[in-house]
């Protein structure tokens, strides 16, 4: 199992100033699988997933201890370029955040930033990523429209397309469906299921059914600790820990 781990978290402690927000986390994120992170509000799910592509670097006074390995390389090592890491590890946020630009430019932005300036190539990759995020059909005749004219679900899929366009190796999702209706949610779940053919995926979710439906592995967080991490099937049918069982059966206060 260790050999197929794309990412590995080793003895991770994380602080917001003096506050220890994550305690001694150890887990692996396997290639071409979906790894879900569940737990009650405030347990540190977002904190954890944002550590995986160093988004928390921008939070002043935060501190990481331990190691986060991507293909065996510590992404927090001093010689590592954070920009490079974020190119390899994309992220989709809880609240969809398309730029106030056209649909096309939203996706082209990441490409241009990463040095792709050939017009033809940009057009190709915008189309491919919109197809991969199952949005192409809906927007192909209005790529010049402002992204804000899309529905909430479409906006979130645009954000996914935007992340896909720069061809990351890992994609992190932080509650991508929390603001969406059931139909949009179903579309995105389907999409994630397809994406794991090519990508390694980690997803935070509030929704246990969602975790059960789409993930291969599940980690249960509580008060900043990783209580249990195992195959999703095992977690939902036969959890090893009492707290996990309480949570997934809804007995958790």
């Amino acid at each position: 199992m260790v050999t197929t781990n794309r990412m590995e978290v080793k003895n991770l402690n994380f602080y917001y100033g003096q506050n220890l927000a994550l305690k001694d986390i150890n887990m692996g994120i396997e290639s071409n699988k979906v790894t879900a992170v569940i737990g009650p509000s405030g347990c540190g799910k977002s904190t954890f997933i944002r550590i995986l592509n160093r988004m928390n670097d921008i939070i002043i006074g935060s501190r990481v201890e331990g190691a986060i390995l991507l293909d065996g390389q510590d992404i927090y090592a001093p010689e590592v370029d954070v920009v490079e890491i974020r190119r390899k590890i994309g992220m989709v946020f809880q609240k969809s955040n398309p730029f106030p630009k056209s649909i096309f430019d939203n996706i082209a932005y990441g490409l241009r930033i990463n040095g792709i300036n050939n017009k033809g190539e940009i057009i190709d990759r915008v189309e491919t990523s919109l197809k991969n995020s199952a949005l192409w059909e809906e927007v192909q005749d209005r790529l010049d429209a402002n992204a804000s004219e899309l529905s909430g679900g479409q906006q979130q899929r645009l954000c996914i397309a935007r992340a896909l366009a720069i061809e990351p190796e890992v994609i992190l999702f932080d509650e991508p469906c929390s603001a969406l209706d059931p139909i949009s949610t179903a579309k995105i779940e389907e999409l994630i299921n397809e994406l794991k053919e090519k990508y390694t995926i980690a997803i935070v979710t509030h929704n246990m059914q969602q975790a059960a439906r789409i993930s291969d592995y599940t980690g249960f967080f509580l008060l900043g600790e990783l209580i249990e991490f195992d195959k999703t099937e095992k977690i939902f049918t036969n959890p090893a820990k009492k707290q996990t069982e309480d949570y997934i059966t809804g007995r958790f206060g």
Binding site: R86, R87, P98, Y109, N114, R162, I166
Partner: peptide, 21 residues
């Protein structure tokens, strides 16, 4: 702030984020 985070998550540098977003 979401715009800044989205841009950084796409691998933009801080300066690119400021200048372009």
């Amino acid at each position: 702030n979401g715009f800044r985070e989205a841009s950084l998550a796409l691998g933009a540098t801080k300066w690119q984020t400021i200048y372009k977003i």
